[in-house]
Design a protein around this nucleic acid. Structure first.
Length: 398
DNA sequence: CGTATTTGACCCGCGC
DNA sequence: GCGCGGGTCAAATACG
């Protein structure tokens, strides 16, 4: 009974993806709070046992309905945050491209590095396709064709080093990059809104649990695959690793998850600084408590850990990305991401991403990422970048 | 009977 | 070259 209640509430928080009687219709149904309240008035006879039971049930129902209403409001608030994140993300992406170009203009009298030549090609290609990086459509990029052609003139075509076409390189890297999600679940697979077909299962070394291989079946040629395996240390933790990009339209429930994993992969490939020994340094990233990067695996992998219990320890140098928006009782509820859960896992990841960008440390991390891309010899005043980003972040969050 | 899952075989990259 | 481990294939099997 208690578990059923928690499930209903979490379903409300994370959004219902299954048809049925949702909370909105519940609240607007003839069985409203007012009707129930009239039934539990003192005019009922105390000897009527059936009436007592009804009163108890009604009290419980009223309490649940009130809580549902509160959750509904909170749910709406979360959706607003998600929308704000989308807008922020687009704006920041445009700004990164603009900063790259601005930096190039500063440097164009010097011999451009290989990385910067590729960057210019990428920008030009993205302008033609209307895409940038991982497929996010840009509304507008503040750069004219003259600037691009000017930049290209400093890029000798007789480069001896064979290079991939920017699209090919991007696609190849995005396919190799992996996004791993750790979540507590009793189910064999988390619900992410996509349709998967199992094509293999193997025992991996060092783990008593089998690893299952799935491929996306929503598109006939969709290259997306995922691996599902229980954690060797904690069998209640399900580790799902995504690889590749969908080449077909996604249902709403799957869109957020797909964009989040793609963005995470993009961040992994472009943002962090790689040290001399080949390890990715994630110290500049926010929420390193919940996000870990690994370059030691055959493919670079970013792990989003949803199993950590939220604790408000930001004053000690750590903080939790879920703390600002998700009540503790929902994050600690078992089986919250399971197949039997009505709520969408995609909404959870989206909420996590929202919390990430809402966090006051996000601008700092973004500055670190951008400056790492631009390079340490930049003539651009990094303080100007930091101030611009922080100002925008404050405006968007206000 | 069509579709999904299971499972052993096979391929390939990597380290020794 | 060989063995090992990860990943994929495809025939067999299960299921609705």
């Amino acid at each position: 009974m208690a578990w059923a209640t928690a499930e209903a509430l979490t379903s409300n928080i994370f959004g219902s993806t299954t048809p049925g009687r949702d909370e909105a219709s519940l609240l607007s149904s003839p069985l409203t709070c007012l009707d129930l309240l009239t039934k539990i008035s003192p005019s009922n006879k105390p000897d009527d046992v059936e009436s007592d039971a009804t009163i108890k049930n009604n009290n419980k129902y009223v309490a649940l309905t009130a809580e549902l209403h509160q959750m509904n409001i909170e749910n709406q608030h979360l959706r607003d945050l998600v929308e704000k994140l989308r807008i922020n993300y687009k704006d920041l992406e445009k700004r990164v491209v603009w900063l790259k170009q601005k930096h190039y203009k500063h440097e164009k009298n010097d011999e451009p590095s290989e990385e910067r030549k590729n960057m210019v090609e990428l920008i030009e290609c993205d302008r033609k396709t209307g895409k940038i990086g991982n497929g996010v459509i840009l509304d507008r990029i503040d750069m004219d064709d003259n600037e691009i052609s000017q930049a290209k003139t400093t890029t000798p075509s007789s480069n001896k080093v064979p290079r991939l076409n920017s699209d090919q390189a991007s696609e190849s890297m995005m396919k190799k990059a992996r996004v791993s999600v750790r979540a507590k679940s009793e189910a064999s697979m988390i619900s992410d809104g996509c349709q998967w077909r199992k094509y293999g299962q193997k025992m991996a070394k060092g783990n008593p649990h089998p690893r299952a291989y799935y491929r996306c079946t929503m598109g006939t040629t969709c290259p997306v695959r995922k691996q599902v395996q229980r954690c060797a240390d904690d069998s209640s933790v399900l580790v799902t690793t995504y690889e590749g990009q969908h080449d077909h339209p996604l249902p709403p429930a799957a869109k957020t998850m797909a964009s989040t994993t793609t963005s995470a992969a993009s961040m992994l490939l472009s943002g962090p600084m790689i040290s001399a020994d080949g390890l990715i340094e994630s110290s500049s990233l926010p929420c390193s408590h919940n996000i870990t990067l690994s370059a030691s695996a055959p493919f670079p992998t970013i792990t989003l850990d949803l199993t950590k219990t939220p604790t408000n320890n930001s004053s000690h140098g750590q903080f939790n990305i879920f703390q600002p928006i998700l009540p503790h009782k929902f994050m600690s509820a078992p089986n919250i991401f399971g197949m039997d859960q009505k709520g969408s896992f995609a909404d959870t990841v989206s909420a996590a991403a929202t919390a990430l960008t809402s966090d006051p440390k996000f601008p700092t991390a973004l500055v670190a990422a951008i400056t790492s891309i631009i390079g340490s010899n930049s003539n651009i005043n990094k303080n100007d970048i930091a101030n611009d980003i922080k100002r925008d972040h404050q405006c968007n969050n206000s």
